[in-house]
Design a protein around this nucleic acid. Structure first.
Lengths: 194, 194, 194, 194
DNA sequence: AATGAATGAGGATTCATTCAT
DNA sequence: GATGAATGAATCCTCATTCAT
């Protein structure tokens, strides 16, 4: 492995560490030293890859978006859009233990970023959520449902809401119950129906 | 007004300032000086009323719970539980501009508090949310619906979810759309029906 | 009890509390609030009796000096100066548990006061110790020993030393052992001997 | 000199400064800024070497222990244990001016540390004193004296006592007088005698 | 590129002392 | 005289960021 590869690997390690630690501890509670330690990179060296802490937050957001893309790409292989949406919900429920401990990564980052005066990163968190909304709307559209954007809003809202409650009440079972309801709801939708 | 009254008023002013500023800027981004300035109280004096920053956070949470109690007490005057729930939703939607800028006070505090190692305050945020869940479930129960706790979960989840999305996307209209849907959903429920 | 008496009783309560708490926690670690609480006097009221914290320290020193005077006055009733000195040592050893926990009141106050730039109170602590030295020297003189001041120095030094070691090592038995030795030493001294 | 060497030198400078200033001003009266200034190190940088003020106190204690070890190692080169003990006393007396101004470094630190609720550092101060006791007892044992631990206790007690009196009365001559007595006492001891 | 070390601007908290009634 | 409340200076500690090698 040459210099170039080693460097980019270090960058990747930092990004992954940032995504993980920022999700667990939040932005304000996480120090650069925390991330550096987790990535096994000397503190001073972090600045070679990321000029500011904000850039690391940005990288973490990008990482979460990449995870989302990975998931939707996999679901896209399913022929039936309804199955894709059900797969999405099942993926959410599968993460219930993590959600109980730390909430939805993107959702909680968005909440924290919103509290800042500077709204640069704020928008980026919104963009990840919008991406999820768009993909979801596309599935409803393909299903022939009217107002697919509204349906997407309802589904993603439900996800963020149940993640927050699961987290706040430290009760992963909330995601089981709400997940089950959402799956039944999807099943009840008739293609193109009202 | 004597010393005693003026002092307790100061405490109240600090509590109100804390509730407001912590909602707007988040816990970590808010300094004691911020709250002191907002309440027009010298920093050193804050400690006469609250021994730590955490106690101010606690007071802010109590303030939000009090607001919630006030609202539900008012709604309790309505004879029909369905109307009470619709009133709750309308109150939420009426706050959409604030939600777009800062999210749900309790919800965002809960998210931040969860990121802490020490879980004391964390639990208190959860308690406020649970209070809302309980009141909501009571209405569904009075309506004669089966599984009122699950319905409450669905409604409160929807609220937290739409608040978060509205905030993350800075789009208050989201609360109009989801609010409308929730109202229609309530109307569609037949008393005691499945 | 009239105003005058009640007030002086309050002053006495504060003095006693100061003597106790300053011995236990040291000057720097003790707040005025600590002393006020211990004396069951409102903080604001302390300043009516003592204009500064230093005045309270001074009062505590005076209290310790009074205790010493009380003890020597009682010992002065014994006809034999050697018995008086032995009584002194026995009184010290009887305090060994307190010494193990907090050291000699006057000695530890003197150590703390010495660390100050301002030497006013410093001198007062020294004066209490000097008073003990003088009384002790008087006994040796009455015994007809040569260089009674040196003997007093040796005895008081031994007391301060064993108090410090007992305290630092948290071992009250040290005072038993050294006390026994000092008693034997006194017995071995022949009146007027070399 | 490279970074590494300069850094470790800085640590040493901080330790030496801490030992000195803490001895002179006491723990509570010394600010981190005092120590930083004395060591010519920016305040913020102190925390790179010592995570808390307590760690600096600990380092100062270790420094004093090192000084003690140095002294006893030098004395160990003398063939006669009695000469070693006399050398120890002479070293004490040689420090009389410092003792008059600030007392025994370890003794006064021990007194201050005892006043704390947290007893961690307290024990460390005790350990330094115990080390001195042990070395002293070893000399008496080698001299063939019975109860060497008691003799050590007497000698070290006398040292702490005369240091405290010298300091409290600001009279270095006290150490001359007590030192002379202790030297004579050592001379009077017959090997193995009672 | 890599890295240990340096820097300084905050931020929470404490507390002696003063004030207003 | 009595008292709750007010004040502000001081202190410890954190951490993003920069620097020198």
């Amino acid at each position: 492995m040459d210099r170039r590869a080693r460097a980019s690997q270090k960058r990747q390690r930092l990004t992954a560490a940032a995504a993980r630690v920022l999700h667990e501890q939040g932005i304000e509670r996480t120090t650069l030293a925390d991330i550096a330690r987790e990535a096994d990179v000397p503190v001073g060296n972090v600045y070679y890859y990321f000029k500011t802490k904000d850039e690391l937050v940005q990288a973490a957001l990008a990482e979460h978006r990449a995870h989302l893309d990975e998931l939707t790409r996999a679901l896209d292989r399913l022929p039936d859009p309804r199955d894709r949406l059900k797969g999405l919900i099942e993926a959410w429920v599968a993460q219930r233990e993590t959600a109980a401990r730390h909430g939805c990564p993107t959702g909680t980052l968005a909440v924290e970023l919103d509290k800042r005066a500077d709204g640069t990163l704020d928008a980026e968190a919104g963009a990840v959520i919008r991406r999820l909304l768009d993909w979801t709307a596309a599935q409803f559209r393909e299903l022939g449902r009217p107002a697919p954007e509204d349906l997407a809003l309802t589904l993603v809202s439900a996800y963020q809401g149940m993640s927050l409650l699961t987290n706040a009440l430290r009760d992963p079972d909330i995601m089981n119950r709400e997940g089950t309801r959402l799956l039944r709801w999807l099943d009840s939708l008739e293609p193109g129906g009202g």
